[in-house]
């Protein structure tokens, strides 16, 4: 077969209407594209695709050290009827629905303001918003645990000063998830902000100048020029932060252990417990596959919503 290929391609012009041959010709013409992505493809095949395929297979198996046993859809049946998985899905979805738009909108607004500042001031703000991210998530969660402590924490201390509280931040199933979200909301999305600022750098000045001549207001310019041209970045952030939010783990692990009750149990926290406490990697894989499908669905939606072929 490979031997037959070159004459085929050579005579491709003659058989140009054959779609198979056309593709071959195109592949040959674009060989550089394949060369450029070859290292990445090799790495992904070896270190991502193989493990991912294995965990997909495990989702249909019962994990046994002596050799996995195919169990069909049993794992999925168990997971989908497990009320704890339902609760974890609800918590995770609620978290994502709040956090993803919040992070993107806030980052967009802050970046839009910051870009008007001088270089030096801008760099100060970038640092202030971004650098808190250098601390490890575990340590940050521990700081927040101290802030939320029901009896001696900072928040209840401040509330008691104005005669309010004590408020059961993490110690009530009705408020605990909200408190974990609040922690994410109060920390500005620094990474998003610097990415938006970098993307804004690329928007050509003359577009705004043309708009100025037309007498457009700043808000109009923002809406009609800045926003559409940032769409690729917004798409990136929407997809990446959706994946990140759906996979939230550390806060639940460090601050609440998924409690009280199951009020802060997230899907990945549950997967972690299923895999590393119960040693049921098949069940954990089934949970992961369901989460995967949900993330893919949301990402496709995001892609439809934000995808454009913009070019300045």
């Amino acid at each position: 077969m490979p031997g037959a290929m070159s004459p085929t391609v050579a005579s491709a012009r003659r058989y140009g209407r054959n779609p198979y041959l056309q593709t071959l010709r195109l592949i040959r013409k674009k060989k550089w594209a394949y060369v450029f992505i070859a290292p990445d493809i090799l790495l992904f095949l070896g270190f991502i695709v193989v493990p991912v395929v294995r965990s997909f297979m495990l989702a249909f198996q019962e994990f046994r050290l002596s050799g996995n046993v195919w169990v069909g859809l049993d794992n999925f049946k168990y997971v989908l009827t497990d009320p704890v998985f339902g609760a974890a899905m609800r918590n995770t979805a609620l978290y994502t629905v709040v956090m993803v738009p919040q992070n993107i909108i806030v980052a967009l607004l802050l970046a839009s303001i910051l870009r008007h500042l001088s270089e030096r001031t801008q760099s100060l703000f970038r640092a202030a918003y971004y650098l808190p991210g250098v601390a490890s998530a575990v340590v940050i969660s521990m700081v927040w645990k101290w802030i939320y402590d029901p009896n001696f924490g900072l928040f209840n201390f401040l509330l008691s000063r104005i005669g309010l509280g004590p408020y059961p931040w993490l110690t009530s199933p009705r408020t605990s998830l909200f408190s974990i979200m609040l922690m994410g909301i109060l920390a500005a999305p620094g990474g998003f902000i610097i990415l938006y600022l970098a993307a804004m750098k690329k928007i050509p000045r003359d577009l705004y100048e043309v708009a100025d001549i037309d007498g457009a207001t700043p808000i109009r310019k923002w809406w009609n020029i800045t926003l559409p041209l940032l769409k690729p970045t917004t798409l990136y952030l929407a997809i990446v932060s959706t994946i990140g939010s759906f996979q939230i783990f550390t806060a639940a692990y460090v601050m609440t252990q998924g409690g009280p009750g199951y009020s802060t149990t997230t899907v990945v926290y549950l997967i972690y417990n299923t895999a590393f406490r119960d040693f049921e990697f098949g069940l954990a894989s089934a949970q992961a596959v369901i989460l995967f499908l949900v993330i893919v669905a949301v990402s496709v939606f995001n892609f439809r919503r934000f995808s454009t072929d913009v070019q300045y």
């Binding site: 991912v52 994946i243 996979q247 899907v267 990945v268 997967i271 590393f276 894989s285 993330i295 990402s299």
Partner: peptide, 17 residues
Amino acid sequence: TILCTMMIPGQVTLVPM
């Protein structure tokens, strides 16, 4: 395809890796 691989949480790919 490669983007989708990121949507599987790392906890379950640890052992095969």
